[in-house]
Nucleic acid binder design. Structure first.
Lengths: 342, 342
DNA sequence: CACCCGAAGGCGAACGTTCGCCTATGCTGA
DNA sequence: TCAGCATAGGCGAACGTTCGCCTTCGGGTG
């Protein structure tokens, strides 16, 4: 069916195949009658242009490669959707590669993308943050843009305002009167989790509050991690009246753990999340959180990449975040904590 | 950088470019010394094979096209991840196209995939269920496999056991003693929502229970839809002691709405979801739900497609589902309902 | 010594495009 | 009447592969 080429159309319309090409691309000057004849012939035998051949000749595949962490979670998925939409608006297709959790197959998939002659690469694979080989390939290969750190740098980045991402919720809690604020972090190896925790610490210091390592637990970005981290936190530390959770998925686990322990939110303990995941509006209670522009980040990555391809000098892009105030935060209970340590 | 061809390697190693091809693909007989020389030359100038040219010649692009509904929700995302993993295991790349909510751009993207000469197409775009043109293209184009109905049929399908998906939770509720069971459905136009509702009705009939259209509300698959549907349901119908929700995302909204109205779950009202979304284990209370094998469905779709490509006759694949019992279901309150209508 | 054979590698063609350049035709204006 | 010039369309080459077939050469066998 699809093995119909320009030559076949040409034979049917009694012209050279190059003329068919001209007509179908609207390039050269062709007589209306001939044009008509060619168009009809193409339709009759079901001609479908071969993008492979076209790309070979034009040295441009109109394709973007995306290497991403497992996107069954909403966050990387939204980012991907943003990319795909924007790419499409520019007539580009997207080749998708999702990595193993440890990112060990990244180099292999970069190679595949290079063989396929993608016009650009977008990275969202924090697991490869430290991989030197990945950095090297990214600098040597086609234009690339990344959401996360790249070992050795040299790759323009799209990020959200990481300062504000942590500072807003922590300031909010402090303003409400909280002084002992627990933290449930994302995977501790990740730059973004480290950065957020560092900012938490800075904000505490700004307000003359002490930093206590006992108040920080790793929730690994997952629902169950948030749940387990909360139990560990409350088993160990006393006097906590609020928890800053580094994403909403973990916050779901946090709320559940608090509920299990009979801790009322926000009466006994406030909770702030991060991401504004779709479920955050309807958790019990609805979650105060930080809205992150993931769709926009995806779209921005594509635009930045296109600029780079057009050889504009690359500048990083930083997107703003904003607070969403819902029902999971309040002032701490009068007269210190009501949370029982077990 | 990447503009290095077989010819360039050949020049450097003093052989014909076809010999280089032989060596790099391990095909013909080549003297060890020459082989060595060629491999070194290739490495020195950073040769990267051009998959475009290879595909053009070999008439196989080693690419799968996927057309999917917006996958920022976990369900289609998991399916996609399943596809991507399995495709990769077989050395195939995936070109991703996500559609507008109404599916209006499906035909356009099918064309793009055909131009790119994908080896096969996987569909997960229920919005196009009724689109005749989509059906036609799918039958005429490269081998295809679908998760949803295709207008006019002729495309092999991978589905979960739709009968069990609805029957299990409803039977569970009936066994607990519930007699008036509300339903929050997915988008009512969709086959899968219709099917589930029909099965709900059949199961009621099996047990001699009447069907009441007042008990059915559309939640459109979304958190907020579930929330709003619940309020409508309870405003309108009395005596409800359980709600069957057609996915977990909506169930989050349902739980929130019940909480708002002071209805305790499962004391006053049981709730069953569907999908076993990651948050379902930590909602308040944890959600009894149906586990759907989405990853597996993605992988199965790829395998089915590969069989079709190898011209095996296509047979549909139906995957089993199973119940996950958690804390959101219980027997109805003694002495009829405690739910106040407003 | 003639014969044959296998190993090593060269060569031409084809996959389906795009692009630039060339040629034939017919019409215009001085 | 003829240079000049659009207009229409043909033609060759190139993009980077793979594949099949051919040639050359050296060594083993009868």
């Amino acid at each position: 069916m699809a093995n119909v080429s320009l030559r076949d159309v040409a034979a049917r319309a009694n012209v050279s195949f190059q003329t068919v090409s001209k007509v179908l691309n609207g390039k050269g000057a062709v007589a209306p009658a001939t044009r008509q004849r060619i168009i009809e012939a193409a339709e009759e035998i079901g001609y479908v242009p071969n993008a492979l051949a076209r790309s070979l000749q034009s040295r441009s595949s109109l394709t973007l490669g995306v290497i991403t962490v497992d996107f069954s979670n909403a966050t990387p998925a939204q980012f991907l959707v943003g990319i795909e939409r924007e790419a499409r608006r520019h007539g580009l297709s997207v080749i998708l590669s999702s990595l193993e959790p440890d990112g060990s197959d990244c180099v292999r998939y970069l190679r595949v993308l290079m063989e396929r002659r993608v016009d650009g690469i977008i990275m969202n694979a924090p697991a490869t943050e430290e991989d030197e080989e990945v950095g090297r390939l990214l600098r040597a290969g086609p234009p690339a843009v990344s959401l996360h750190e790249i070992a050795g740098g040299g790759v323009p980045r799209v990020t959200v305002d990481s300062e504000a991402t942590a500072a807003l919720p922590v300031r909010h809690l402090i303003a409400l009167g909280h002084r002992r604020i627990g933290v449930v972090t994302g995977l501790r190896q990740r730059h973004s989790a480290q950065r957020r925790t560092a900012v938490y610490r800075e904000v505490l210091a700004e307000h003359g509050l002490p930093y206590d390592a006992l108040l920080v637990e790793d929730g690994a970005w997952e629902v169950e991690g948030g749940y387990a981290a909360t139990h560990r936190l409350l088993d160990r530390a006393s006097g906590i009246t609020a928890i800053y959770v580094q994403n909403d998925l973990m916050a779901v686990g946090v709320l559940n753990a608090l509920h299990e322990r009979g801790v009322s939110v926000p009466g006994d303990c406030s909770v702030v999340g991060c991401d504004d995941h779709p479920v955050a509006a309807r958790t019990i209670p609805p979650l105060t959180t930080v809205r992150m522009p993931f769709f926009d980040a995806g779209a921005a990555a594509v635009r930045l990449l296109l600029e780079r391809i057009a050889s504009g000098p690359p500048g990083d892009v930083v997107l703003p975040v904003s607070m969403v105030y819902r029902a999971s935060t309040a002032s701490p209970p009068a007269g210190s904590t009501r949370i029982a340590r077990r």
